[in-house]
Design a protein around this nucleic acid. Structure first.
Lengths: 243, 243, 243, 243
DNA sequence: GATGAATGAGAATTCATTCAT
DNA sequence: GATGAATGAATTCTCATTCAT
């Protein structure tokens, strides 16, 4: 796992309790609500989720909910804040990327981080799209995050010298678009984004940006939950590379 | 414009008037409602749109609305039907695509068509995402359309022989994801998807799928409304090609 | 009855239906709601009145209520508008008032009108006080009305030449204050404001403003609904006058 | 200042702590709450005041509030009790009042006391009106106080012999009504009730009750805070008196 | 004594949908 | 065909009051 568990300071949303300093119990309750919301959003989507659903999952009461959040949107904003921090971390996680193997590997690392972040905050990210239209602030927040990642990417792309037919900004946006939406579609279809898929994505992005490179011998190690492709391939791959 | 204006036979939704044959006035009213819905969805998104908004824009009444559609979802379904036909047309519009210039051009044509379709039905496509979660049928409908496009792409990719590190299906999905979401982000940011952006997308896709091809000297002709001034990138591109 | 029944043009409040032109049925429903509100406010006071109470009395539904008014306050505002018109009419109803009998009679007439208006709109007037604090607009509206009456009074007072120790504006305010609050207290105590009470009020005001006038022999005729039996006081009064 | 600062023994309301003897800290907390309530009622009125507002102003907690008062009403009752004592003192403060200068002066003194009391307890008095309708006990309490004053006035009026056209009870009520409401209106309008206004009120009441007396040459001394500049009216008044 | 947290009954409000003209 | 009016189930939200520490 590339991403540390979120442990950022939790702050009350814009609710009546806005400026209240939270003690331990309060913080736990808030966390319960945030987690419950993630679950609820995941199950039924943001719009279909009722405040009721959230408090039921959190095993608390209506009143308590409004003690911590002024409404459903505020709750989403809080989650989006968390997600934003995680996504922002992806910014800095991307080192120099070049056309060579090393570049591919760097990209692959980053892709893994992105994928983890996306999957962890999938319900929030989906809700973000849903709501972006009606909530200017939330929308801006999301765009800032996405934009940050894209800008980092763009500068990595630009670093390697001009590519014919590629506008670095558009390219960066396109990459973010692809990776984001790919996850969405996969999740929607109920298919996992496994190592192989990430390899494909990485290769596509690497090629798209730097032309026809060939992926390096071995994929990166990942957490055991998604057992990597058989090693034979890897070996063969290596052989091929040597030759 | 690659896409003919939609003039498909309009059929009433599932409303009380379902099987009723519509006379002229009826058809006009229905069209007014569909157009109004597009506008309303565009302005505020599907969820935030009230039947009220639609009938106000259409300058008609609640009662009339339910004469033509059994509910809001039915209305969306009708629009989705229209959009679906247009999208389906993209399937067949994609000829063989190879690593050479000809392939780039074919892809570019297709990209243009996609872009037009997307932009025309943007509100519906967004609404589809919004609703996917809560309406199984509609969601399936959308997936079928997207899947169709992806499958066509996948077979075009597969045709050109195996690419190392690329899974054709995942790749096709990734391409659709990228192009779709790219449009979304651009529209959201209020920036147009112009010829230059389409060139970049095309080049990226072409490279991603077939390795380091270089885009052809000149872009394709597009509709005169926004003739893009030749750009440095393009020029450099041309120069390089010559060399 | 000095006041004609209110038949002013009813306009929808600030509700969703704000600008909707009302047809006959709509107007009737709105009237029903206004009347119901008067009754409800009368029974339990503005604050204790629930929207529910109003719609129950009006024998209509919650939804319908919000078709005509955006909330309880809006409803009160509408009633206040009516009351305001009636009160404003008192402005013009007050002719020249002097220290003599004729002046007393004029004042008495006016007092009768005031009393009728107050009693008709008592619930609204009480609610006005209740709400004045929290609703700036409503408060202003009420003050404008009260102020209008007071100003008219003030000019009538000033007309008759300067009175030692009397500031016309303060005096006018004081008169309005007295008459208004007197009605409130009486209604509160469940005692009627009958002709005798109006005589007392008139005499007090007349004297307060012009010094020691003596009320004329007979009171004015009033509406037959509660013909006050001649009272001892009255008799004594007459007798004394003769003497 | 005619009124001594309130220092009556504070007793807990009906809260859980009812019969508990309060120590020093306890008394201070209770006082803080009472004062906070006055401020809150003043700012937003009784109904709009939340227990929350009170405890925030008092810089204490919900829990503490219910340690001293059983509910919001109980709090008001406590304040009303204080106000009641002050108002009751007005009863006894009114000596014999006759048609002569001496009478005017006595009235003026009383008026000053009334004004002070009103202004000190304005929020409570307003709240009383707000609540009268829904709380029988409180309402009775208020009426008793007002009634006491009115009765004293009535007997003072009656003492001087029958006045034609004046019912002593109604007249007394009318006077209380006038003076009370006048303060309300002034405060509402943000205009002070200054010495000149009190002079006017006094003169009006004196005349209303006893016929055309002329106010005495000079007003009474009042607290230095707002020494009214002699006014033309006053001057004229004096002149006239001399003549 | 004091406090932050929790509660839940009750009120307001929305809006898709049906109805009567 | 069209329309204004009506409906009420479903939700959101508030806030006085109680509880546990």
């Amino acid at each position: 796992m590339l991403l540390a568990p979120f442990d950022g300071s939790i702050e009350p949303g814009g609710g009546p309790a806005s400026r209240r300093a939270l003690r331990n119990q309060g913080r736990r309750t808030m966390r319960k609500l945030l987690d419950a919301a993630m679950e609820a959003f995941d199950r039924r989507g943001y719009h279909a989720t009722r405040v009721n659903d959230v408090v039921e999952i959190a095993k608390t009461s209506h009143g308590t909910f409004y003690l911590y959040f002024s409404n459903k949107e505020d709750l989403l904003r809080a989650l989006a804040g968390e997600a934003g921090e995680v996504v922002a971390a992806l910014d800095t996680a991307l080192g120099p990327v070049g056309p060579n193997d090393q570049g591919w590997r760097e990209l692959r690392r980053w892709m893994e981080g992105f994928s983890e972040a996306w999957q962890r905050y999938a319900p929030v990210l989906r809700a973000w799209t849903d709501l972006a239209m009606s909530d200017a602030e939330l929308s801006a927040q999301g765009h800032a995050a996405a934009g940050g990642v894209a800008r980092t990417l763009a500068s990595r792309i630009a670093e390697t010298g001009p590519q014919p037919g590629i506008d670095p900004n558009a390219a960066a946006e396109a990459v973010v678009a692809m990776v984001d939406r790919f996850h969405y579609l996969r999740q929607f279809a109920g298919e996992p984004v496994d190592a192989s898929a990430l390899d494909t994505l990485t290769t596509m992005v690497h090629r798209a940006l730097f032309g026809g490179g060939i992926p390096p011998l071995v994929s990166l190690a990942r957490d055991g939950s998604a057992p990597p492709a058989p090693k034979k391939t890897r070996a063969a791959n290596g052989a091929r590379k040597k030759a």
